[in-house]
Design a binder for these strands. Structure first.
Lengths: 102, 102
DNA sequence: TGTTTATATGAGTATATGTGCATATATGTA
DNA sequence: TACATATATGCACATATACTCATATAAACA
């Protein structure tokens, strides 16, 4: 069989890929990203919409922010978060649709 | 803004999606799936190729098997594993390529 | 400046996860 | 049957993770 396309993954790539999927491996983060799919929400809005503690949302947003999966803008005392990675969001959405229809 | 497409995810979908990504969130499992991309390998072959303990490979294959991401066939005393989910493998490959070229 | 509102963060805790060792199981062969 | 080889599995342990509470930080405004 032809396995000439096989390339051993370097450590940096492995880390980046695993971190990306780790972001999508937690139900809370999936719910947040799914909520942000269409528009931006403030931390409080996310908290209320998903029935999560403010600190829980804030912790998870930091996680997603560090991976550059979400971006934010300040408006007064509120901070509005929105998604910031088309590729990852597409992967998530595809997999959700795949799960919903199978 | 239009958020009419937003649907709260049911628990079962959330679990399935998060489990799928959890499978892809570990460097060892990523390396195994990446190895199996082109052809099947026995447990020992995987172990040798990736410099992993036999038990580690076996444990992770069980994980992947439970999620139906790999399938296997017996040949004598060896068991050959191969991938069994085109969608997940595509998602993984896309994300690896994305990471390699960015 | 003091107060209110919104968000971020540190510490503690319970649980989940990944790995290795030792051993069990299963197949093949003498 | 006895033994060798290949794989699976139970247990123990170290580490990672997600959540909560309490508190810190930051902006708006009286």
């Amino acid at each position: 069989m032809d396995d000439s396309n096989y390339v051993d993954l370097d450590e940096e790539t492995l880390f980046l890929v695993s971190q990306t999927f780790k972001a999508l491996s937690d139900p809370t983060r999936i719910r947040i990203l799914n909520l942000l799919f269409n528009r931006e929400f403030s931390v409080n809005e996310i908290s209320e919409q998903l029935h999560l503690r403010q600190s829980t949302v804030s912790h998870q947003l930091r996680f997603l922010k560090n991976l550059r999966l979400v971006k934010f803008r300040r408006e007064g005392t509120s901070i509005y978060y929105s998604h910031d990675d088309e590729h990852v969001l597409n992967v998530l959405n595809e997999t959700i649709q795949h799960a919903l229809h199978h």
